[in-house]
């Protein structure tokens, strides 16, 4: 087995050390710092981007909150204005209807008075007519002379 031929042991170990040392030097000076920096830079960049995204999200959340607050305030204000207007309108309407009711009541009263008067007049007309008819009837039928006042009292019953 050529592996066990000790002629070449020293040479193999010598060149192993020489070549490994050069390889180590090249990798640790030229390769690893750059690869490490690239990886670390990427991680930093990602972290930074995430942090920025977080702060932007915070800002937009605050903005949304402000907007919501303004919206709620204006909604409340609108509600208040509406309620106030409604109350005012209701008051006005109540006043107007009261006024109208009063006017109508006056008119109704006047009309009732007038109707009462007319009925009274009509009744008295009927009374005198009945008395007159009674006086005439008494005179013509019985030949009696009845005073109009008695006839009126009789007609009234």
């Amino acid at each position: 087995m050529p592996q066990l031929d000790h002629t070449w042991f020293a040479s193999q170990i010598f060149w192993l050390f020489v070549i490994f040392a050069i390889f180590y030097f090249v990798l640790s000076k030229l390769v690893l710092p750059k690869l490490g920096a690239a990886i670390e830079g990427r991680e930093k960049r990602i972290e930074g981007d995430l942090a920025r995204a977080g702060s932007l999200k915070g800002e937009s959340d605050a903005m949304i909150a402000t907007y919501e607050k303004a919206l709620a305030e204006s909604r409340a204000k609108a509600q208040a204005v509406r309620a106030e207007t409604e109350a005012k309108l209701a008051k006005e309407a109540a006043a107007k209807s009261a006024e109208l009711n009063a006017a109508l009541a006056d008119k109704i009263k006047a009309a009732e008075t007038r109707i009462g008067q007319a009925r009274k007049d009509a009744l008295s007309n009927v009374e005198s007519l009945a008395a007159e008819i009674a006086v005439e009837a008494a005179r013509k039928i019985a030949g009696l002379t009845v005073s109009e006042a008695d006839a009126r009292a009789a007609a009234r019953g």
Partner: peptide, 29 residues
């Protein structure tokens, strides 16, 4: 006996190959 042998040659080639690949890989970052 510290002769440069075919073993040392392939050690050199493997290291050069790996070194070249890794240096090229690390160049741009």
């Amino acid at each position: 006996n510290l002769a440069y042998t075919n073993s040392a040659l392939w050690m050199t080639l493997a290291s050069l190959g790996a070194g070249a690949l890794l240096v090229a890989s690390a160049r741009d970052g």
